[in-house]
Design a binder for these strands. Structure first.
Lengths: 342, 342
DNA sequence: ACGAAAACTGGGAGCGCTCTCAACGCGAGC
DNA sequence: GCTCGCGTTGAGAGCGCTCCCAGTTTTCGT
């Protein structure tokens, strides 16, 4: 298979390389009949340009990278990542970009991955999930290399960097305010890790809601989880001794774990303890008591990240784009609001 | 950034392009002191060869593709895929390969993805997850394009194709035999989709175990699920009317759904209905009643797939490799065996 | 019908590597 | 001391595409 080249196609169509290239890339200035003739040859031969050759000549690889943390358990237990990945993958597909996946687990992974993502000729741009340990470092790398970059989730140092996020503070505020309105007096929270902006912001929203309604902040009602199911479970065990009548969990997965702990202790949901989660992943509806939660548009979020990245690739990385997406409170059973079908 | 090239490095080190290339690729026939001199320049300049240029010249992209089905819900709900992906990604990283991810959802996705994976100059090889709808077609494509290919999970037509799998029949056989030994008389199964070899094989193992122990096959005790939690749930609702005293579910996720249905109906696990699942994903231990299940080595499975693929890339695709990995019965609470801590 | 402008087409020069091959020492063997 | 052979090095020719530019054809106004 002396693999077909542009040249061969050109010969068959009786035109030059350049013309075939123009047809291939949908460029103007090709006579209609010539274009069609070339297209026919392309179709009949099944010709597809050599990706590496094109990348070398055009200095565009049509590939974007996705860097995801894999902090031991997170990638497994939190379906959030699957959903995000799916949204990004589908968007890439739509734009005919290839998606390169980089899962960063160990320190050694980092060492191998970091140089690779900034390597010339491999990636046109990169999406980095914020909130993991080496975040700062990789963002710096990428920035130095002038590699177009979109961070999914606001990073710690967000100047000069494009990111896409939801308004975590406000969303959490709404969730907690909802619990207050329902008459709960001792509202606890299972917060996310406080080394991530998500964790910080959602807790800030919780605090803000309580303050605004004149509640004082009781530190014993705040427990930090790690976004895993068992993290939620153990956090709730701790929280239980503070006797909360409602809990705002910073993720659905943690909410599920927490609800398991509550059930085990013999209390009922939502009567004894009301719950609001965060994410609205499909699992939110699978539990015995369906979860009231904040819906964030995970798939669109991914698509928008790709959109933005491609924009950066094509139009330069300045000025940095900051995009905030909308969220929504979805009321189900676990909060005890009249809406619940129970 | 007039991006550094091989030529520049060569000049700085006072040698030729060729010599730098040799050093870069760890090839022999370079004098020790020269090699060191070049390595120093490489290190101090931070030079990294242009990926596309290298791919074009060497006809090797150092990238492999992973094609995953995304049949609506599956990729979300079944953590199996996350684990597999993780195993594959880490193996790629180890070998300094880049992983390109292709998530196939809709028919349109297929149309965009199928030509892309067989495209010259993009991928050195491909791993395809078996069991999805367009499986046959893409395997055919790839085979015609002589693209090195490893199928994860035995495909329907397995001649001429390398694949890696576990012995599903035997594993299911062991699971069901375990339930028989525990004294259960009416053992049902929630089978996987019968259009996939996994679904078929695990059911075959179930049938084989019953036959071997002199049980007759009661069709009302066999219900087909779709590997989702809710699929398991509804399958169990159906199965309940056949009054099984034990159930072998073809996946952990389905087992979880089924157990939810059993609990809802007021029966207890394992006393009224015993359970054995399949996969041994972390979720197996998260339920109130920990799941007895078949452990399959998902991460190693992925690593082995990458291993095999690279072997095919380097040593030719013939003869096709067929690799079967070991599984293990993990006894926990849900089967009611004395081992359970309940 | 004629010239200028616009539209189209082809050739050539890369893009930054790898790889073959010829040339060049240099020590060993006779 | 001379040749042979081996390890080492560099030059050159691509890999298959894009893109610029110059040349050619077509179009259009007058």
């Amino acid at each position: 298979m002396a693999s077909l080249t542009l040249e061969d196609v050109a010969k068959q169509a009786g035109v030059s390389r350049s013309t075939v290239s123009r047809v291939l890339n949908d460029r103007p200035n090709v006579r209609k009949d010539v274009r069609e003739r070339v297209q026919n040859v392309i179709k009949s031969t099944g010709f597809r340009p050599h990706a590496a050759a094109r990348a070398l000549a055009s200095q565009r690889s049509w590939t974007i990278g996705l860097v995801l943390p894999l902090s031991v358990t997170l990638f497994f237990t939190d379906p959030y990542y699957s959903h995000l990945t799916k949204g990004i993958a589908q968007a890439c597909n739509q734009y005919n970009y290839t998606l390169a996946l980089f899962l960063v687990g160990t320190k050694e992974d980092e060492e191998k991955i970091f140089p690779r993502v900034s390597r010339k000729g491999l990636l046109d741009g990169v999406i980095v999930q914020s909130g993991h340990h080496g975040e700062q470092q990789i963002i710096g790398h990428l920035h130095d290399a002038k590699m177009p970059l979109v961070v999914a989730g606001r990073p710690f140092r967000s100047d000069n960097v494009s990111y896409i996020d939801i308004d975590n503070i406000n969303a959490a505020f709404i969730a907690v305010t909802h619990l207050i309105r329902l008459g709960n007096k001792r509202i606890g929270t299972i917060a996310g890790p406080q080394h991530s902006t998500v964790g910080l912001d959602r807790k800030a929203g919780y605090v803000k809601a309580l303050n605004e309604r004149g509640f004082s902040i009781d530190e014993s009602l705040i427990v930090e989880g790690d976004f895993t199911e068992s993290g939620g479970y153990y956090a709730m065990k701790k929280l239980l001794s503070a006797k909360p009548d409602a809990v705002f969990a910073a993720s659905d997965v943690m909410a599920l774990g927490a609800m398991r702990a509550v059930r085990e202790s013999g209390l009922s949901i939502p009567d004894d303890v009301a719950f609001v989660g965060f994410d609205d992943l499909p699992i939110a509806t699978l539990s015995d008591v369906q979860l009231t939660t904040i819906r964030q548009p995970v798939a669109q979020f991914g698509a928008k990240a790709v959109d933005t990245l491609i924009d950066l690739v094509e139009n330069g990385i300045n000025p940095p784009r900051h995009i905030i997406m909308e969220t929504e409170l979805v009321i189900r059973e676990s909060c005890g609001a009249p809406h619940g079908k129970k």
